[in-house]
């Protein structure tokens, strides 16, 4: 009796295992095939009613480059990303230091304040934010796009950096102070070198997130301040006006840009760190 139960359980567990792997592989294969569709379409001379395109060409890339002004769009994307990465580190890292090291009244409220922009989805606060930015004439400008993109990234840097700073021995700073260094010098000569790996990881994650941030850029950008992902949306929205392959070529450009940075980021961070935002 016991033996039969045990073998039944084992067979059940086996079937369960297989089912789980099948679901997971089914999901990944579909995502892969979706990406392959875009990739293949961007090189297709003509692809209608067949499994594979009739022929391959690279001309869609040059046509996408001129049709969608990809040069300008990429330059805007780069400006936005660099500014957001630099400013979010500049504002976020000192705040993370304060949260990790200092005690002050209202600390819990400040922590909650930094958590909120990551809990509320961008489209919800993006509309009132865009309203305010348009009111002060920053809407539709590069500065407006950068400011809007900083709203989720500053708290993100704080959240990544706070535990990182907590695990650095405070005695190192105390030793520097004994030798007469002020806070600024401790920061530059002791903390920044120690924090460099954490800042690098946080910056790379901010970079990937900013390139892919659609909602906030979409709501605040004007015609001259669109990043690549927003241009891609407009192109897909007006599908039919341009050749589908041209849009796919643009999508591939976007994929290469994000995935290249993701690949670099993954050398420094664990994949789960990219999503883990809230601890219970």
């Amino acid at each position: 009796m016991f033996m039969r139960n045990a073998s039944q359980t084992r067979a059940g567990a086996q079937a369960w295992n297989i089912a789980i792997w099948v679901v997971m592989i089914f999901f990944l294969v579909n995502v892969g095939a979706m990406i392959a569709t875009v990739l293949l379409n961007s090189f297709a001379t003509r692809w209608l009613g067949t499994w594979f395109p009739a022929g391959l060409t690279t001309r869609w890339y040059s046509s996408a480059w001129s049709e969608f002004q990809l040069g300008d769009v990429l330059f805007v994307t780069m400006q936005v990303t660099v500014a957001v990465v630099a400013l979010s580190a500049l504002i976020g890292v000192p705040a993370a230091y304060a949260l990790a090291r200092a005690e002050f009244p209202g600390k819990r409220i400040v922590q909650l304040l930094f958590l909120l922009p990551m809990m509320v989805p961008p489209i919800t606060y993006g509309i009132p934010l865009a309203t305010v930015l348009y009111k002060v004439n920053l809407g539709g400008s590069l500065a407006g796009v950068i400011l809007a993109n900083l709203v989720p990234t500053v708290p993100f840097v704080i959240m990544v950096m706070t535990p990182f700073i907590e695990q650095i021995d405070p005695k190192l700073e105390a030793a520097a102070r004994v030798f007469g260094a002020n806070t600024f010098r401790v920061f530059v000569h002791v903390l920044v070198p120690l924090l460099a790996p954490g800042i690098l990881a946080a910056s790379l994650m901010v970079m990937v997130r900013t390139i892919a941030m659609f909602e906030l850029t979409f709501l605040t950008a004007g015609p001259d301040s669109q990043t690549l992902v927003v241009s891609l949306y407009y192109a897909a929205f007006a599908a039919g006006v341009r050749a589908g392959q041209s849009i796919s070529a643009m999508a591939v450009t976007y994929m290469i840009l994000t995935l290249a940075w993701l690949l670099i980021a993954l050398r420094f961070v664990n994949p789960t760190q990219l999503v883990t935002r809230v601890k219970t």
């Binding site: 892919a212 941030m213 897909a236 999508a251 994000t258 995935l259």
Partner: peptide, 11 residues
């Protein structure tokens, strides 16, 4: 996750 909703929709 990295590619985001716009690219997924387009794909």
């Amino acid at each position: 996750i990295t590619l985001g909703t716009v690219l997924i929709a387009d794909g």
